[in-house]
Design a protein around this nucleic acid. Structure first.
Lengths: 196, 196
DNA sequence: TGTTTGTTAGTGAACGTTAACTAATTACAG
DNA sequence: CTGTAATTAGTTAACGTTCACTAACAAACA
């Protein structure tokens, strides 16, 4: 209805797309539903995106924005141990504020839509792993984490984050993820960090 | 085409349903595709299942069969520590032989199909958690695991299993999950078990 | 006036499911 | 045992609905 620029409209469309997937699942994410929610007609959506795949790629773009913020936040800390704790806590804090993003990560169906989407998601996950891996290696150099292969430590940390988020989702977002994160940071400390 | 009993046909249909979801994703799991693969007509499917939901419930039934076998296998061990190791290793061994089952667990969309399906899946997951939780509590009584809340230990073990399976899937089942499991058992030993 | 952002109306294809009918198997009376 | 009736497992054809996407046109803004 109201005429606004493509740049502004694209933001509104992606916002609403994430909401739909979060509230109703990817199966219910149709151009019809999307256009109704945004308040424009179906063909109007195609003025701002090439096709449905293009919209999904736009959603994945939001993860890049998160990664940049995460990377900058982690850098603020000096000690590697604090960086690890920051990495974990920042994840939980962000997802608590953006629960819709968890619905994207856990909807594997989305990544089966096209090879382009699949590759983009894989590169996002690789990048995130890389960030944490570098911190762990740094911590190992200073003998601040226990003597275990980096990849195994990585698995423990990422595994517990992912499972905590999954339980949060399955509970219907009933508990505070940030608080759960504090406990997770504590557990990781007890398990992986070398006591002084 | 060939006439066989409902009991036999139901098994073939569920086998093929799991294969479709595994190979093409839940989105491609249609009655059309299913009937083509099974080699009967679409309406013939409805001779053996009430509706699509009923077929999905049939798939979930396979998890109960797994749980029974898992429970019996774990019971064969005497020491709680060995039970934990068996629990982990059995998971990996089973999934390596039945990769299709991982596609069911990780396809959250399936659980959003109906509340019946959702509840059944939740109860399966709860049951599995219960099995491991009881072992951990048993091990804690004998001071065989480190002093950490049972739920936190549970999160670490289930988290690392889940992430290992996810990486296996994302690699296109390129490595041996059983071998990866052995390493996981080792890591869990180093992290959680009390050294003698 | 030309470009951009919107509309209405419509496309072909796929979806789950049903109606109506047929062939094979099973159950049972004579 | 055999003849027949009932039941079971299959068929073809079609239902209404939704899907992503497009052609053609209209209004707003530069």
């Amino acid at each position: 209805m109201a005429r606004i620029s493509t740049e502004e409209r694209q933001v509104l469309i992606i916002d609403e797309a994430i909401k739909i997937i979060h509230e109703m699942g990817y199966q219910s994410f149709s151009i019809r539903e999307l256009s109704t929610r945004v308040g424009i007609s179906e063909p109007a959506i195609y003025r701002h995106f090439l096709n449905k795949e293009d919209i999904v790629l736009g959603i994945l773009g939001r993860f890049n924005e998160f990664d940049v913020k995460l990377f900058n936040e982690v850098k603020l800390n000096e000690k590697p141990v604090e960086k690890i704790q920051c990495f974990v806590q920042y994840h939980f804090n962000f997802l608590e504020k953006n629960p819709g993003m968890t619905s994207i990560v856990f909807a594997e169906e989305i990544f089966n839509q096209s090879s382009l989407i699949r590759e983009k998601m894989l590169s996002i996950m690789e990048k995130r792993k890389r960030i944490l891996k570098d911190i762990i290696d740094e911590a190992k150099l200073g003998n601040q984490v226990i003597d275990l292969e980096t990849d195994e430590i990585l698995m423990v940390i990422l595994g517990i984050i992912r499972l905590a988020v999954l339980e949060w989702r399955m509970s219907g977002f009933a508990f505070s993820l940030s608080k759960r994160g504090t406990k997770t940071v504590d557990t990781i400390g007890k398990l992986l960090l070398v006591k002084k």
